[in-house]
Amino acid sequence: MLELNIINETSKLKAVILGTAKSNGPVPKPEDCYDPKSLEHVLAGTYPTEEDMVQEMEEVSAILSKYNVDVYRPKVIENYNQIFSRDIAFVIDNKLVKANILPDREKEYLAIQHVLDLIKPENIIELPEECHVEGGDVMPWNEYLFVGTYSGEDYPDFITARTNTAAVKALQENFPNKSVKPFQLRKSNTNAKENALHLDCCFQPVGKNKAILHKNGFLLESEYNWLKNYFGADNVFEITKEEMYNMNSNVFSISEDVVISEVGFTRLNTWLRENGFTVEEVHYSEIAKQEGLLRCSTMPLIRA
């Protein structure tokens, strides 16, 4: 059996689900895109090829193996996008929460059944149907549970609004020992530079007390300020709109001092190294065209 344990984003990683780009399917039609960045690349004819994305994910798999992490992969569904394993479920403490994601993506959850079978049934939580939540919006951080959300009355109009108020309340009920802290995110169906698809598109903790942050991803300046004050201005790496668009906050921590990052994130990777981190660089710019990066494609199960 798997003894799930996720208290925060950066403790030493022991086991993870890494998505797969195999049999990823044809280039989607514009009307079938779930986010503005994928739409942009479909229209421009620059949507990534399966071959390139498989190669990028194998680079990540190799680094995880180098650090002795147990890596699980989804069962491959033919002609289906299964890259972003963080969307379908997430772990808090010793519980796995099934994400109530877009109905079209239910198959993705079924493709990790071989992993779910290793978890005690009482440690799997399925939230009520009205709770919409995706793992990219949920960040356990010790006593806190940081949750990206959108509570505007126009929530149904945004396919990019993935976690609602009902889910925030349900998480608080299921994890009463956590202080659940919601953050309102900026949403756009059409402009990737004005859209924080998930909380990890504009914020992520690294190490023990540092964070990557993008101010414009937050609708409320007071909530952005809370995070900046919590970590301390000297511990925060502020990314630009262009860097947010390129997913600079969507790196992935193997431990408190090792971070997997995209080779093109020059400014961020320099800052990380200056602050004592080992940066394992990979090529992930093709996968980034779908508005997701390293955190999105990994779903940690156990951290020490």
Rank of each mutant, 00 (worst) to 15 (best):
I212K: 05
G292C: 14
E134V: 01
N225L: 15
P156M: 14
A288F: 05
K107I: 03
L272F: 05
I112L: 01
G136I: 14
P30Y: 10
R303H: 00
V42K: 00
N250E: 04
S61Y: 08
T298D: 01
L96C: 03
A166L: 10
E122V: 06
I159M: 12
C131H: 03
A62P: 04
N191D: 15
T165F: 07
V91K: 02
C201F: 06
A44R: 07
R295N: 14
Q290E: 15
L227E: 05
P30D: 10
E58Y: 01
A89S: 15
I92L: 10
E59C: 07
C202M: 03
Q204K: 13
D200K: 01
A111M: 02
A161G: 08
I239N: 12
N8W: 02
S151N: 11
E51S: 14
V91L: 07
K98R: 15
L18P: 10
E106H: 05
Y155E: 15
E238L: 12
D154L: 02
E286H: 11
E286S: 13
V91N: 04
P36H: 04
K95I: 03
E153N: 15
L171I: 04
S253A: 15
N123M: 01
V138R: 02
L64T: 06
F277V: 09
I254N: 00
V180A: 06
Q184H: 13
M53G: 01
A44C: 03
A196N: 12
A21I: 08
D52G: 07
